[in-house]
Design a protein around this nucleic acid. Structure first.
Lengths: 213, 213
DNA sequence: GTCTATACGCAGATAGAC
DNA sequence: GTCTATCTGCGTATAGAC
């Protein structure tokens, strides 16, 4: 049983890579099998068909992409401290799983309904989302952060955190990040920049700072 | 000739949609033909094979994605005015072609070399890039903007501008943007937020503002 | 669990009539 | 330019031996 567990993990890793690269339709069982180092028929033994395999990868990715940020909202730290922690958590998870953002974006574009429904069905997602909204609302009422739409907070955060992973291959070439360490250091150093951006987004300031015309 | 031009444009539009959705491998000629409202064989008449069609879509997209921002760097306006104009240009182009970011991200992940080489071969890309770098360098030396790596400027800009398009379908559902106008207004309103973020990134400030630990 | 052999359908591409 | 018919190969999936 220990060995078959190991094989299954390896299959999931290989399948994730190929599905991310060529999409649900474009990926072939043969290529996944080759990437996993097993035969096509053996792959079919573990996952009876392509759909089952995709669902396996899909669920595996979602559980990683939705790290438990619940805990960050449990203690009595300040809102900016919480945001710093969430940036930390997401950055570290994505450094370990850099292909997750590409996979999710493709899923959003090919089958958004399936994605949203699965996400809502997972553990405490809805609960966590409500908790975060409530906290932000309270902070805005109190005046400790600026009153801006939640969608702006979320897209700014996700855009800043995920884009370096979405464009990884191009960034490495365009900016000559030769080895893996250079890329990793760039990502780690970026945590502070993301935090500063979120701070700038949320902090209270004089009016009309947004207009440039 | 006028009619065949119209048919070709329609094919490119359909092909772009299907390639974006299912990838270069996953997209089928039949589905593209159906989307374009013609038969498979007629599609083969216009584009002899799938590769030719993909290249057609690819080049079409690149010329749109690399709008001529050269002009923005020609006059003697301030650096922030230029950035405001570039945000304007990109936002407007992407509103007209919202699937471009997804297509590019997938291309980055499946065949980055091909992408980089094609980009470098296009019009005045290299020249424009050099001009922008030079200008940023000069501003940093002069002290009018903060000294930060170009990669941070580029990823912040591209992440802020493209993410709402990459995640369009999910954002519309999560934040109940029911009709097309609501999404468009959100994107247009976001221009100011992107500008403010870039301003915050580039403006000079006291040291250590980046640390939160 | 892992292999070989095989069946079946789908997708790409061309020939040739009109 | 647009159609019908057809060839060929690839990909999925299962049967069955070991």
């Amino acid at each position: 049983m220990k060995n078959s567990k190991k094989v299954e993990d390896n299959i999931l890793r290989a399948a994730r890579k190929i599905f991310t690269l060529h999409g649900r339709k474009g990926a072939t069982m043969a290529e996944i099998a080759e990437e996993a180092g097993i035969s096509r028929t053996l792959l079919n033994y573990y996952y009876r068909d392509k759909d089952k395999l995709f669902e396996g990868v899909f669920n595996d990715i979602l559980t990683h992409f939705l790290p438990n940020i619940n805990e960050a909202f449990e203690d009595n730290s300040s809102i900016m401290e919480k945001i710093g922690r969430v940036i930390d958590i997401y950055t570290d998870v994505l450094l370990e799983n850099p292909d997750i953002p590409v996979f999710i974006i493709n899923q959003i574009n090919t089958d958004p309904d399936h994605l949203m429904k699965t996400v809502e069905g997972i553990s405490n997602f809805t609960e966590t989302r409500a908790k975060i909204s409530k906290r932000l609302e309270a902070e805005m009422n109190y005046g400790s952060i600026r009153r801006i739409p939640t969608i702006d907070i979320i897209t700014t955060f996700l855009g800043m955190v995920t884009f370096p992973f979405l464009g990884k291959n191009a960034l490495e070439k365009a900016f000559k990040l030769e080895d893996a360490d250079e890329y990793k250091n760039y990502i780690l150093g970026r945590k502070a920049l993301v935090f500063d951006t979120m701070k700038n987004l949320l902090e209270r300031r004089q009016k009309n700072v947004f207009s440039w015309s």
